[in-house]
């Protein structure tokens, strides 16, 4: 199986993996090229999604509530937003993980920052998704 398709173990989880898991060709970082590859896949997706959504946001800048609501209810716009939230949040979490690993060296603080990074990303993603779904399906 291609290493790229494996789930990303967290840096902490990597330490408690079995010797067999370590032996499966994922290198000393225990996750092979997964982080690198996901960052690129989401980067390409973000280029497409952000470019398309720019037109939506330009249209909605300064618009009244009825227009904003009607536009965000449009299935195409909702789906673009959901895709962008998913791809964007994965991308930003990976990016912030790199920044934390570059600058935060104390083990305890680093693990805490990496956890907060995940919490922040999940909260941003789920609140945004909730809002889009409420606009799509709500009364």
């Amino acid at each position: 199986m291609n290493a790229i398709l494996r789930p990303t173990p967290s840096p902490t989880a990597a330490k408690i993996r079995t010797p067999l898991a370590r032996a499966r060709g994922l290198g000393s970082s225990k996750e092979g090229a997964t982080h690198f590859w996901r960052q690129r896949v989401t980067a390409v997706a973000n280029i497409v999604l952000a470019s398309l959504l720019t037109f939506v946001f330009v249209k909605l800048a300064g618009a009244d509530y009825a227009t904003v609501k009607a536009t965000l209810k449009n299935p195409l716009v909702s789906l673009l937003l959901l895709l962008f939230i998913a791809s964007g949040v994965i991308h930003m979490r990976l990016g912030m993980q790199t920044v934390i690993e570059d600058y935060v060296h104390a083990e305890g603080r680093k693990v805490a920052c990496l956890m907060l990074n995940t919490f922040f990303s999940v909260i941003v993603a789920l609140t945004s998704v909730w809002a889009v779904l409420k606009l799509s399906f709500g009364a």
Binding site: Y65, V68, K69, L72, L81, G88, V89, M92, G95, M96, V124, T127, S128, W130, A131, V132, K134, L135, G138
Partner: peptide, 16 residues
């Protein structure tokens, strides 16, 4: 942009 996503989330919640 990482922290800027709060702005997007906030705006979407406001619309919802």
């Amino acid at each position: 942009l990482y922290f800027g996503t709060l702005l997007l989330a906030w705006w979407l919640i406001a619309a919802a």
